[in-house]
Design a binder for these strands. Sequence first.
DNA 1: CCCTGATTCGC
DNA 2: GCGAATCAGG
Length: 230
Amino acid sequence: MSWTDERIEQLRSMWEKGLTASQIADELGGVSRNAVIGKAHRLGLKSRPSPVKATEKMAKPAKTAAPTAAKPAPAATAARPTAPATPRPASTVPRPEPKPAAEAPHIENAAAAPTKPEAPRIVSIGPGGFIRQGPGDQQAPIPPAPPRRLVPAKPSPEIADKTSLLDLNDRICRWPMGHPGEPDFHFCGEAVNPGFPYCVEHCGRAYQAQLPRGTRRPPPPPPFGGPRVR
DNA sequence: CCCTGATTCGC
DNA sequence: GCGAATCAGG
């Protein structure tokens, strides 16, 4: 399996949705968890709570080691991106900044500031790797519309009458739209490409995995062009 | 042990 | 660029 544009897009989407590398891997199929992680990194998208990468803070040898004169550069420089390079006239004036940030602004939580209710999201992962949401768990405030644009140009069926499992028959495309378990999961429903379970559009997707070179083509030559890449 | 993601490194 | 091997935390 290679990383086609499509697979990469799926990877991106899932990764951002917070699915684990394993889940992404076996949903994409044909790749290992490591492959997914490796690809994700190469794509630039990374991070996300990793169990092992929390190593960013090192308690200095604060023990007996008295940093009397050893380290002239505390973490002061990086702390202030806003402050440009202040043309500090070479002087003996020590910078007036060392603020022990150990300031804990204890607020009176006496019913004063209920700023963040912060409902604890509870999400479970279904067998297919999809995220299962509770009925009252809709996240309305989250604006980013799902970048999922799987439907190319279907003029007719919007979200209105989706093709459900029960609507499937020999003549309509069975290509799944979305993932099982999601509220909007349905099937393509277009007229099939004769002899195939999918419409022409999706045959292009379903069969683009090429046969090993040298293998002769099956009798029914694909009515669609070559592998399509949108 | 299982899981996780990060990194390395030969291909 | 790819991904198995390895590492390392939970």
